[in-house]
Design a protein around this nucleic acid. Structure first.
Lengths: 245, 245
DNA sequence: CCTCGGTTTTGAACACGTTCAAGACAACGC
DNA sequence: GCGTTGTCTTGAACGTGTTCAAAACCGAGG
Protein backbone atom coordinates (compact mmCIF):
# COMPACT_ATOMS: atom_id res chain seq x y z
CA UNK A 1 0.00 0.00 0.00
CA UNK A 2 1.21 3.41 -0.89
CA UNK A 3 -0.27 4.76 2.30
CA UNK A 4 -0.24 8.50 2.44
CA UNK A 5 -1.25 8.43 6.09
CA UNK A 6 -1.77 12.06 6.87
CA UNK A 7 -5.07 12.62 8.59
CA UNK A 8 -4.32 16.06 9.83
CA UNK A 9 -3.55 19.45 8.37
CA UNK A 10 -0.31 19.53 10.30
CA UNK A 11 0.45 16.02 9.24
CA UNK A 12 0.04 16.91 5.58
CA UNK A 13 2.37 19.83 6.06
CA UNK A 14 5.03 17.66 7.60
CA UNK A 15 4.70 15.20 4.78
CA UNK A 16 5.14 17.97 2.26
CA UNK A 17 8.14 19.32 4.09
CA UNK A 18 9.84 15.95 4.04
CA UNK A 19 9.13 15.45 0.35
CA UNK A 20 10.41 18.91 -0.49
CA UNK A 21 13.62 18.34 1.41
CA UNK A 22 14.12 14.94 -0.18
CA UNK A 23 13.61 16.08 -3.75
CA UNK A 24 15.86 19.07 -3.30
CA UNK A 25 18.62 16.85 -1.95
CA UNK A 26 18.09 14.25 -4.65
CA UNK A 27 18.32 16.95 -7.29
CA UNK A 28 21.49 18.52 -5.99
CA UNK A 29 23.50 15.51 -4.87
CA UNK A 30 21.83 12.49 -6.34
CA UNK A 31 19.65 9.77 -4.93
CA UNK A 32 22.23 7.31 -3.68
CA UNK A 33 24.31 10.06 -2.11
CA UNK A 34 21.41 11.38 -0.05
CA UNK A 35 20.78 9.72 3.28
CA UNK A 36 17.52 9.51 5.11
CA UNK A 37 19.19 11.25 8.01
CA UNK A 38 20.04 14.20 5.80
CA UNK A 39 16.49 14.36 4.58
CA UNK A 40 15.12 14.23 8.08
CA UNK A 41 17.49 16.91 9.26
CA UNK A 42 16.70 19.18 6.32
CA UNK A 43 13.00 18.73 7.04
CA UNK A 44 13.62 19.36 10.73
CA UNK A 45 12.21 16.05 11.76
CA UNK A 46 13.34 12.79 13.30
CA UNK A 47 14.36 10.08 10.91
CA UNK A 48 11.59 7.80 12.08
CA UNK A 49 9.07 10.42 11.15
CA UNK A 50 10.02 10.25 7.49
CA UNK A 51 9.13 6.58 7.64
CA UNK A 52 5.77 7.41 9.09
CA UNK A 53 4.83 9.16 5.85
CA UNK A 54 6.92 7.23 3.34
CA UNK A 55 7.29 3.51 3.67
CA UNK A 56 10.78 3.59 2.21
CA UNK A 57 13.30 5.76 0.48
CA UNK A 58 11.98 4.47 -2.82
CA UNK A 59 8.50 5.67 -2.08
CA UNK A 60 9.80 9.20 -2.15
CA UNK A 61 10.55 8.67 -5.80
CA UNK A 62 7.04 7.50 -6.45
CA UNK A 63 5.81 10.69 -4.86
CA UNK A 64 8.12 12.53 -7.20
CA UNK A 65 6.53 10.90 -10.22
CA UNK A 66 3.16 12.13 -9.07
CA UNK A 67 4.40 15.66 -8.72
CA UNK A 68 6.16 15.43 -12.03
CA UNK A 69 2.98 14.41 -13.79
CA UNK A 70 1.09 17.50 -12.68
CA UNK A 71 4.07 19.59 -13.74
CA UNK A 72 3.90 17.86 -17.11
CA UNK A 73 0.25 18.79 -17.49
CA UNK A 74 1.04 22.35 -16.48
CA UNK A 75 3.74 22.69 -19.12
CA UNK A 76 1.52 21.10 -21.71
CA UNK A 77 -1.07 23.75 -21.06
CA UNK A 78 -3.68 23.92 -23.81
CA UNK A 79 -1.37 22.62 -26.51
CA UNK A 80 -3.78 19.80 -27.24
CA UNK A 81 -6.57 22.28 -27.89
CA UNK A 82 -4.74 24.22 -30.54
CA UNK A 83 -4.07 21.63 -33.21
CA UNK A 84 -5.50 18.47 -34.64
CA UNK A 85 -2.30 17.37 -36.31
CA UNK A 86 -1.25 14.08 -34.82
CA UNK A 87 2.45 14.66 -35.09
CA UNK A 88 2.25 18.07 -33.48
CA UNK A 89 0.16 16.75 -30.64
CA UNK A 90 2.40 13.81 -29.97
CA UNK A 91 5.50 15.94 -30.19
CA UNK A 92 4.09 18.46 -27.74
CA UNK A 93 3.37 15.79 -25.18
CA UNK A 94 6.79 14.24 -25.49
CA UNK A 95 8.75 17.47 -25.42
CA UNK A 96 6.95 18.79 -22.38
CA UNK A 97 7.39 15.42 -20.71
CA UNK A 98 11.13 15.72 -21.09
CA UNK A 99 11.02 19.38 -20.10
CA UNK A 100 9.14 18.66 -16.94
CA UNK A 101 11.59 16.06 -15.71
CA UNK A 102 14.73 17.85 -16.87
CA UNK A 103 15.94 19.00 -13.45
CA UNK A 104 15.66 15.45 -12.20
CA UNK A 105 17.30 13.54 -14.99
CA UNK A 106 19.54 11.46 -12.78
CA UNK A 107 16.71 10.70 -10.42
CA UNK A 108 14.59 9.47 -13.28
CA UNK A 109 16.92 6.57 -13.94
CA UNK A 110 15.38 4.93 -10.92
CA UNK A 111 12.21 4.53 -12.91
CA UNK A 112 13.94 2.04 -15.15
CA UNK A 113 16.24 0.38 -12.71
CA UNK A 114 13.10 -0.88 -11.07
CA UNK A 115 10.95 -1.13 -14.16
CA UNK A 116 12.23 -4.59 -14.84
CA UNK A 117 12.00 -5.83 -11.32
CA UNK A 118 8.64 -7.54 -10.98
CA UNK A 119 8.56 -7.04 -7.24
CA UNK A 120 9.61 -3.45 -7.00
CA UNK A 121 6.69 -1.19 -6.12
CA UNK A 122 8.50 1.48 -8.09
CA UNK A 123 8.10 -0.30 -11.38
CA UNK A 124 5.74 1.51 -13.73
CA UNK A 125 4.00 -1.83 -14.12
CA UNK A 126 3.45 -2.41 -10.44
CA UNK A 127 0.02 -2.07 -8.87
CA UNK A 128 1.34 0.78 -6.71
CA UNK A 129 1.92 2.97 -9.72
CA UNK A 130 -1.11 1.78 -11.64
CA UNK A 131 -3.16 4.96 -11.14
CA UNK A 132 -0.28 7.08 -12.35
CA UNK A 133 0.21 4.88 -15.37
CA UNK A 134 -3.44 5.13 -16.17
CA UNK A 135 -3.25 8.88 -16.28
CA UNK A 136 -0.29 8.78 -18.64
CA UNK A 137 -2.06 6.35 -20.95
CA UNK A 138 -5.19 8.45 -20.85
CA UNK A 139 -3.19 11.43 -21.95
CA UNK A 140 -2.03 9.49 -24.99
CA UNK A 141 -5.60 8.49 -25.67
CA UNK A 142 -6.44 12.17 -25.77
CA UNK A 143 -3.60 12.77 -28.20
CA UNK A 144 -5.12 10.21 -30.54
CA UNK A 145 -8.78 10.98 -30.13
CA UNK A 146 -8.33 14.67 -30.79
CA UNK A 147 -6.24 14.13 -33.87
CA UNK A 148 -7.23 13.85 -37.48
CA UNK A 149 -5.77 10.44 -37.96
CA UNK A 150 -7.17 7.20 -39.20
CA UNK A 151 -6.24 4.24 -37.07
CA UNK A 152 -6.73 0.67 -38.15
CA UNK A 153 -9.27 -1.41 -36.28
CA UNK A 154 -6.68 -3.84 -34.95
CA UNK A 155 -4.64 -1.12 -33.40
CA UNK A 156 -7.24 1.24 -32.08
CA UNK A 157 -7.80 -0.17 -28.65
CA UNK A 158 -4.16 -0.58 -27.78
CA UNK A 159 -2.65 2.42 -29.49
CA UNK A 160 -2.63 4.66 -26.41
CA UNK A 161 -0.79 2.08 -24.40
CA UNK A 162 1.68 1.54 -27.21
CA UNK A 163 2.28 5.26 -27.40
CA UNK A 164 2.90 5.30 -23.69
CA UNK A 165 5.49 2.57 -24.14
CA UNK A 166 7.01 4.70 -26.85
CA UNK A 167 7.11 7.60 -24.43
CA UNK A 168 8.88 5.38 -21.95
CA UNK A 169 11.41 4.58 -24.63
CA UNK A 170 12.04 8.25 -25.23
CA UNK A 171 12.50 8.83 -21.55
CA UNK A 172 14.86 5.89 -21.36
CA UNK A 173 16.97 7.43 -24.10
CA UNK A 174 16.85 10.82 -22.42
CA UNK A 175 18.05 9.41 -19.15
CA UNK A 176 21.18 8.20 -20.90
CA UNK A 177 21.54 11.25 -23.10
CA UNK A 178 24.70 13.15 -22.25
CA UNK A 179 24.60 15.60 -25.13
CA UNK A 180 24.51 19.28 -24.18
CA UNK A 181 21.03 20.35 -23.17
CA UNK A 182 19.94 16.84 -24.10
CA UNK A 183 19.49 18.05 -27.63
CA UNK A 184 19.85 14.51 -28.92
CA UNK A 185 16.68 13.55 -27.15
CA UNK A 186 14.69 16.35 -28.72
CA UNK A 187 16.21 15.34 -32.04
CA UNK A 188 15.14 11.78 -31.42
CA UNK A 189 11.60 12.92 -30.77
CA UNK A 190 11.47 15.00 -33.92
CA UNK A 191 12.81 12.17 -36.02
CA UNK A 192 10.75 9.35 -34.56
CA UNK A 193 7.35 11.03 -34.33
CA UNK A 194 6.90 10.93 -38.11
CA UNK A 195 8.02 7.31 -38.07
CA UNK A 196 5.33 6.53 -35.55
CA UNK A 197 2.62 8.05 -37.67
CA UNK A 198 4.03 6.17 -40.61
CA UNK A 199 3.89 2.92 -38.72
CA UNK A 200 0.30 3.51 -37.74
CA UNK A 201 -0.44 3.93 -41.42
CA UNK A 202 1.56 0.89 -42.43
CA UNK A 203 -0.22 -1.22 -39.86
CA UNK A 204 -3.27 -1.10 -42.09
CA UNK A 205 -1.50 -2.70 -45.04
CA UNK A 206 -2.54 -6.27 -45.68
CA UNK A 207 1.09 -7.44 -45.67
CA UNK A 208 1.61 -6.68 -42.05
CA UNK A 209 -1.86 -6.89 -40.61
CA UNK A 210 -1.54 -10.42 -39.29
CA UNK A 211 1.69 -9.43 -37.64
CA UNK A 212 0.12 -6.40 -36.05
CA UNK A 213 -2.68 -8.52 -34.77
CA UNK A 214 -0.25 -10.96 -33.28
CA UNK A 215 1.73 -8.26 -31.55
CA UNK A 216 -1.37 -6.65 -30.14
CA UNK A 217 -2.48 -10.03 -28.94
CA UNK A 218 0.75 -10.50 -27.07
CA UNK A 219 0.37 -7.12 -25.48
CA UNK A 220 -3.10 -7.98 -24.25
CA UNK A 221 -1.90 -11.28 -22.91
CA UNK A 222 0.79 -9.53 -20.97
CA UNK A 223 -1.41 -6.95 -19.36
CA UNK A 224 -3.06 -8.65 -16.39
CA UNK A 225 0.40 -9.23 -15.06
CA UNK A 226 -0.19 -12.63 -13.52
CA UNK A 227 1.25 -11.29 -10.29
CA UNK A 228 1.14 -14.21 -7.90
CA UNK A 229 -2.11 -15.07 -6.15
CA UNK A 230 -2.46 -11.34 -5.60
CA UNK A 231 -3.91 -9.77 -2.46
CA UNK A 232 -7.25 -9.61 -4.28
CA UNK A 233 -8.89 -7.78 -1.41
CA UNK A 234 -8.74 -4.74 -3.65
CA UNK A 235 -6.23 -1.98 -3.42
CA UNK A 236 -6.99 -0.52 -0.06
CA UNK A 237 -7.38 2.92 -1.57
CA UNK A 238 -10.62 3.38 0.22
CA UNK A 239 -10.52 6.76 1.94
CA UNK A 240 -8.13 9.18 0.28
CA UNK A 241 -8.64 6.92 -2.69
CA UNK A 242 -9.38 8.58 -5.99
CA UNK A 243 -6.30 10.35 -7.14
CA UNK A 244 -7.76 13.49 -8.57
CA UNK A 245 -8.66 14.36 -12.09
CA UNK B 1 38.03 -5.92 -16.04
CA UNK B 2 36.06 -8.08 -13.75
CA UNK B 3 38.81 -8.09 -11.19
CA UNK B 4 39.68 -11.69 -10.74
CA UNK B 5 42.66 -11.05 -8.51
CA UNK B 6 43.68 -14.57 -7.82
CA UNK B 7 47.32 -15.12 -8.52
CA UNK B 8 47.56 -18.40 -6.75
CA UNK B 9 46.05 -21.84 -7.12
CA UNK B 10 44.76 -21.64 -3.59
CA UNK B 11 43.46 -18.15 -4.24
CA UNK B 12 41.52 -19.34 -7.26
CA UNK B 13 40.02 -22.12 -5.19
CA UNK B 14 38.89 -19.73 -2.52
CA UNK B 15 37.33 -17.50 -5.11
CA UNK B 16 35.47 -20.43 -6.59
CA UNK B 17 34.30 -21.54 -3.18
CA UNK B 18 32.86 -18.11 -2.45
CA UNK B 19 31.13 -17.92 -5.80
CA UNK B 20 29.66 -21.39 -5.39
CA UNK B 21 28.32 -20.55 -1.98
CA UNK B 22 26.88 -17.28 -3.18
CA UNK B 23 25.07 -18.70 -6.20
CA UNK B 24 23.67 -21.57 -4.22
CA UNK B 25 22.29 -19.17 -1.63
CA UNK B 26 20.97 -16.79 -4.28
CA UNK B 27 19.22 -19.67 -5.99
CA UNK B 28 17.59 -21.04 -2.88
CA UNK B 29 16.62 -17.90 -0.99
CA UNK B 30 16.98 -15.05 -3.44
CA UNK B 31 19.50 -12.30 -3.89
CA UNK B 32 18.19 -9.68 -1.52
CA UNK B 33 17.59 -12.22 1.21
CA UNK B 34 21.16 -13.49 1.14
CA UNK B 35 23.68 -11.61 3.22
CA UNK B 36 27.38 -11.34 2.62
CA UNK B 37 27.89 -12.80 6.07
CA UNK B 38 25.92 -15.88 5.09
CA UNK B 39 27.96 -16.26 1.95
CA UNK B 40 31.21 -15.91 3.84
CA UNK B 41 30.11 -18.41 6.43
CA UNK B 42 28.96 -20.93 3.84
CA UNK B 43 32.30 -20.56 2.08
CA UNK B 44 34.10 -20.90 5.41
CA UNK B 45 35.79 -17.58 5.06
CA UNK B 46 35.83 -14.17 6.70
CA UNK B 47 33.51 -11.60 5.23
CA UNK B 48 36.35 -9.33 4.25
CA UNK B 49 37.80 -12.11 2.17
CA UNK B 50 34.81 -12.18 -0.11
CA UNK B 51 35.50 -8.54 -0.84
CA UNK B 52 39.06 -9.40 -1.74
CA UNK B 53 37.79 -11.39 -4.69
CA UNK B 54 34.57 -9.57 -5.52
CA UNK B 55 34.40 -5.84 -5.31
CA UNK B 56 30.77 -5.92 -4.27
CA UNK B 57 27.74 -8.12 -3.90
CA UNK B 58 26.73 -7.09 -7.39
CA UNK B 59 29.94 -8.36 -8.88
CA UNK B 60 28.93 -11.84 -7.84
CA UNK B 61 26.08 -11.55 -10.28
CA UNK B 62 28.40 -10.56 -13.05
CA UNK B 63 30.42 -13.66 -12.32
CA UNK B 64 27.19 -15.60 -12.55
CA UNK B 65 26.54 -14.23 -16.02
CA UNK B 66 29.91 -15.50 -17.12
CA UNK B 67 29.21 -18.95 -15.81
CA UNK B 68 25.78 -18.91 -17.32
CA UNK B 69 27.18 -18.11 -20.74
CA UNK B 70 29.41 -21.18 -20.80
CA UNK B 71 26.48 -23.23 -19.61
CA UNK B 72 24.46 -21.77 -22.47
CA UNK B 73 27.12 -22.86 -24.97
CA UNK B 74 27.20 -26.30 -23.40
CA UNK B 75 23.46 -26.75 -23.75
CA UNK B 76 23.57 -25.42 -27.28
CA UNK B 77 26.05 -28.11 -28.17
CA UNK B 78 26.42 -28.57 -31.89
CA UNK B 79 22.92 -27.40 -32.69
CA UNK B 80 24.31 -24.73 -34.97
CA UNK B 81 26.14 -27.33 -37.01
CA UNK B 82 23.10 -29.41 -37.80
CA UNK B 83 20.87 -27.01 -39.67
CA UNK B 84 21.08 -24.01 -41.93
CA UNK B 85 17.50 -22.94 -41.35
CA UNK B 86 17.53 -19.51 -39.80
CA UNK B 87 14.46 -20.00 -37.68
CA UNK B 88 15.67 -23.29 -36.27
CA UNK B 89 19.06 -21.82 -35.45
CA UNK B 90 17.64 -18.77 -33.76
CA UNK B 91 15.11 -20.80 -31.85
CA UNK B 92 17.78 -23.17 -30.62
CA UNK B 93 19.87 -20.34 -29.28
CA UNK B 94 16.96 -18.71 -27.53
CA UNK B 95 15.53 -21.85 -26.01
CA UNK B 96 18.85 -22.99 -24.63
CA UNK B 97 19.46 -19.51 -23.33
CA UNK B 98 16.30 -19.71 -21.29
CA UNK B 99 17.07 -23.28 -20.29
CA UNK B 100 20.49 -22.38 -19.04
CA UNK B 101 19.27 -19.63 -16.77
CA UNK B 102 16.13 -21.40 -15.59
CA UNK B 103 17.32 -22.24 -12.07
CA UNK B 104 18.25 -18.63 -11.57
CA UNK B 105 15.18 -16.89 -12.86
CA UNK B 106 14.76 -14.57 -9.94
CA UNK B 107 18.41 -13.73 -9.89
CA UNK B 108 18.29 -12.77 -13.54
CA UNK B 109 15.99 -9.86 -12.86
CA UNK B 110 19.04 -8.04 -11.58
CA UNK B 111 20.27 -7.91 -15.14
CA UNK B 112 17.48 -5.55 -16.01
CA UNK B 113 17.14 -3.63 -12.83
CA UNK B 114 20.62 -2.34 -13.57
CA UNK B 115 20.38 -2.41 -17.35
CA UNK B 116 18.86 1.01 -17.37
CA UNK B 117 21.19 2.54 -14.86
CA UNK B 118 23.98 4.15 -16.82
CA UNK B 119 26.38 3.97 -13.92
CA UNK B 120 25.83 0.44 -12.78
CA UNK B 121 28.70 -1.86 -13.69
CA UNK B 122 26.12 -4.59 -13.91
CA UNK B 123 24.37 -3.07 -16.87
CA UNK B 124 24.81 -5.15 -20.01
CA UNK B 125 25.86 -1.91 -21.67
CA UNK B 126 28.55 -1.06 -19.15
CA UNK B 127 32.22 -1.42 -20.02
CA UNK B 128 32.58 -4.03 -17.30
CA UNK B 129 30.31 -6.42 -19.11
CA UNK B 130 31.50 -5.51 -22.60
CA UNK B 131 33.44 -8.72 -23.21
CA UNK B 132 30.49 -10.82 -22.20
CA UNK B 133 28.18 -8.82 -24.42
CA UNK B 134 30.57 -9.27 -27.30
CA UNK B 135 30.42 -13.01 -26.95
CA UNK B 136 26.65 -12.98 -26.99
CA UNK B 137 26.55 -10.78 -30.07
CA UNK B 138 29.12 -12.98 -31.78
CA UNK B 139 26.92 -15.96 -31.15
CA UNK B 140 24.10 -14.21 -32.95
CA UNK B 141 26.48 -13.38 -35.79
CA UNK B 142 27.13 -17.09 -36.08
CA UNK B 143 23.41 -17.77 -36.17
CA UNK B 144 23.12 -15.44 -39.15
CA UNK B 145 26.28 -16.31 -41.02
CA UNK B 146 25.61 -20.01 -40.97
CA UNK B 147 22.03 -19.65 -42.12
CA UNK B 148 20.58 -19.68 -45.58
CA UNK B 149 19.06 -16.26 -45.33
CA UNK B 150 19.32 -13.18 -47.44
CA UNK B 151 19.85 -10.04 -45.43
CA UNK B 152 19.51 -6.57 -46.88
CA UNK B 153 22.60 -4.43 -47.13
CA UNK B 154 21.33 -1.83 -44.69
CA UNK B 155 20.74 -4.36 -41.99
CA UNK B 156 23.65 -6.72 -42.39
CA UNK B 157 26.18 -5.04 -40.15
CA UNK B 158 23.84 -4.45 -37.25
CA UNK B 159 21.67 -7.52 -37.42
CA UNK B 160 23.59 -9.53 -34.82
CA UNK B 161 23.35 -6.74 -32.33
CA UNK B 162 19.65 -6.34 -33.04
CA UNK B 163 19.14 -10.05 -32.53
CA UNK B 164 20.94 -9.79 -29.23
CA UNK B 165 18.58 -7.01 -28.21
CA UNK B 166 15.74 -9.29 -29.23
CA UNK B 167 17.22 -12.00 -27.03
CA UNK B 168 17.32 -9.54 -24.18
CA UNK B 169 13.66 -8.84 -24.78
CA UNK B 170 12.88 -12.54 -24.57
CA UNK B 171 14.81 -12.83 -21.35
CA UNK B 172 13.01 -9.81 -19.98
CA UNK B 173 9.69 -11.50 -20.70
CA UNK B 174 10.89 -14.74 -19.19
CA UNK B 175 11.94 -13.04 -16.00
CA UNK B 176 8.38 -11.89 -15.53
CA UNK B 177 6.81 -15.08 -16.78
CA UNK B 178 4.91 -16.83 -14.02
CA UNK B 179 3.25 -19.47 -16.13
CA UNK B 180 3.97 -23.06 -15.16
CA UNK B 181 7.37 -24.17 -16.41
CA UNK B 182 7.56 -20.78 -18.10
CA UNK B 183 5.76 -22.26 -21.04
CA UNK B 184 4.60 -18.83 -22.10
CA UNK B 185 8.18 -17.83 -22.77
CA UNK B 186 8.82 -20.80 -24.99
CA UNK B 187 5.58 -20.00 -26.73
CA UNK B 188 6.70 -16.44 -27.21
CA UNK B 189 9.91 -17.65 -28.79
CA UNK B 190 8.10 -19.95 -31.16
CA UNK B 191 5.70 -17.24 -32.19
CA UNK B 192 8.16 -14.40 -32.57
CA UNK B 193 10.99 -16.16 -34.34
CA UNK B 194 9.03 -16.35 -37.58
CA UNK B 195 8.10 -12.72 -37.16
CA UNK B 196 11.76 -11.83 -36.90
CA UNK B 197 12.61 -13.60 -40.14
CA UNK B 198 9.64 -11.91 -41.70
CA UNK B 199 10.84 -8.51 -40.55
CA UNK B 200 14.29 -9.14 -41.98
CA UNK B 201 12.62 -9.86 -45.27
CA UNK B 202 10.34 -6.87 -45.10
CA UNK B 203 13.30 -4.62 -44.35
CA UNK B 204 14.32 -5.01 -47.98
CA UNK B 205 11.05 -3.58 -49.31
CA UNK B 206 11.40 -0.09 -50.74
CA UNK B 207 8.53 1.18 -48.61
CA UNK B 208 10.37 0.71 -45.36
CA UNK B 209 14.00 0.92 -46.39
CA UNK B 210 14.44 4.56 -45.46
CA UNK B 211 12.94 3.82 -42.09
CA UNK B 212 15.24 0.87 -41.56
CA UNK B 213 18.19 3.01 -42.46
CA UNK B 214 17.12 5.62 -39.97
CA UNK B 215 16.70 3.12 -37.19
CA UNK B 216 20.05 1.52 -37.88
CA UNK B 217 21.61 4.96 -37.89
CA UNK B 218 20.17 5.67 -34.48
CA UNK B 219 21.53 2.41 -33.18
CA UNK B 220 25.01 3.26 -34.43
CA UNK B 221 24.78 6.67 -32.91
CA UNK B 222 23.89 5.18 -29.59
CA UNK B 223 26.68 2.63 -29.50
CA UNK B 224 29.77 4.51 -28.35
CA UNK B 225 27.91 5.30 -25.20
CA UNK B 226 29.34 8.75 -24.64
CA UNK B 227 30.38 7.44 -21.25
CA UNK B 228 32.56 10.19 -19.82
CA UNK B 229 36.00 10.78 -21.34
CA UNK B 230 36.48 7.02 -21.43
CA UNK B 231 39.34 5.61 -19.37
CA UNK B 232 40.77 3.77 -22.40
CA UNK B 233 44.35 3.43 -21.25
CA UNK B 234 44.41 1.84 -17.89
CA UNK B 235 41.31 0.09 -16.80
CA UNK B 236 42.67 0.41 -13.31
CA UNK B 237 43.01 -3.29 -12.72
CA UNK B 238 45.67 -2.75 -10.14
CA UNK B 239 45.48 -5.47 -7.54
CA UNK B 240 44.52 -3.68 -4.39
CA UNK B 241 41.89 -2.39 -6.65
CA UNK B 242 41.53 1.26 -7.48
CA UNK B 243 38.15 1.53 -6.01
CA UNK B 244 36.51 4.23 -7.94
CA UNK B 245 33.89 6.71 -7.39
C1' DC C 1 -9.77 20.78 34.58
C1' DC C 2 -8.94 16.06 33.53
C1' DT C 3 -9.17 11.84 30.68
C1' DC C 4 -9.33 9.21 26.78
C1' DG C 5 -8.42 7.81 21.78
C1' DG C 6 -6.20 8.64 17.88
C1' DT C 7 -2.49 10.81 15.42
C1' DT C 8 2.07 12.24 15.12
C1' DT C 9 6.97 12.30 16.63
C1' DT C 10 11.04 10.66 18.64
C1' DG C 11 15.62 8.36 18.83
C1' DA C 12 17.86 4.27 20.15
C1' DA C 13 18.59 -0.15 18.13
C1' DC C 14 19.11 -3.62 14.34
C1' DA C 15 21.00 -5.93 10.28
C1' DC C 16 23.03 -4.98 6.31
C1' DG C 17 26.97 -3.89 2.63
C1' DT C 18 31.38 -2.31 2.78
C1' DT C 19 36.18 -0.77 4.37
C1' DC C 20 40.59 -1.18 6.36
C1' DA C 21 44.57 -1.75 9.21
C1' DA C 22 46.66 -5.49 10.74
C1' DG C 23 48.14 -10.07 10.66
C1' DA C 24 49.07 -14.92 8.58
C1' DC C 25 51.00 -17.39 5.01
C1' DA C 26 54.09 -18.82 1.18
C1' DA C 27 57.91 -18.55 -1.77
C1' DC C 28 62.37 -17.07 -2.56
C1' DG C 29 67.33 -15.31 -2.06
C1' DC C 30 70.84 -15.30 1.03
C1' DG D 1 68.20 -20.44 9.57
C1' DC D 2 66.39 -15.45 8.47
C1' DG D 3 64.55 -11.60 6.41
C1' DT D 4 61.75 -9.80 2.36
C1' DT D 5 58.25 -9.44 -0.72
C1' DG D 6 53.86 -10.28 -2.43
C1' DT D 7 49.52 -12.80 -1.77
C1' DC D 8 45.83 -13.93 1.03
C1' DT D 9 42.90 -13.68 5.31
C1' DT D 10 40.89 -11.75 9.31
C1' DG D 11 37.35 -9.31 12.12
C1' DA D 12 36.26 -5.07 14.22
C1' DA D 13 34.31 -0.79 12.79
C1' DC D 14 31.65 2.58 9.86
C1' DG D 15 27.58 4.50 7.72
C1' DT D 16 23.47 3.05 5.69
C1' DG D 17 18.13 2.05 5.34
C1' DT D 18 14.74 0.57 8.34
C1' DT D 19 12.03 -0.76 12.70
C1' DC D 20 9.71 -0.11 16.99
C1' DA D 21 8.34 0.80 21.60
C1' DA D 22 7.62 4.65 23.87
C1' DA D 23 6.60 9.41 24.30
C1' DA D 24 4.36 13.82 22.94
C1' DC D 25 0.67 16.03 21.02
C1' DC D 26 -4.14 17.20 20.10
C1' DG D 27 -9.11 17.50 20.02
C1' DA D 28 -13.41 16.19 22.15
C1' DG D 29 -16.33 14.53 26.12
C1' DG D 30 -17.18 14.44 30.76
Amino acid sequence: MTEATSKTRKGAETRERILDAALELFRTQGYAETTMRQIAQAADVAVGNAYYYFASKDQLILAFYERNHVEHLRLLGDALDTTRDFQERLRAVLRTKVDSAMPYRRLSTKLFTSAADPESPLSPFSPESAPLRKEAVDLMAEVVSGASLRVGKDLRADLPELLWLYEMGIVLYWVHDSSPECENTYGLIDRTVPVVERLIGIAKLPVVRPMVRELVGMLDELRPTAQAPAPTAEDGSAPGGGRRR
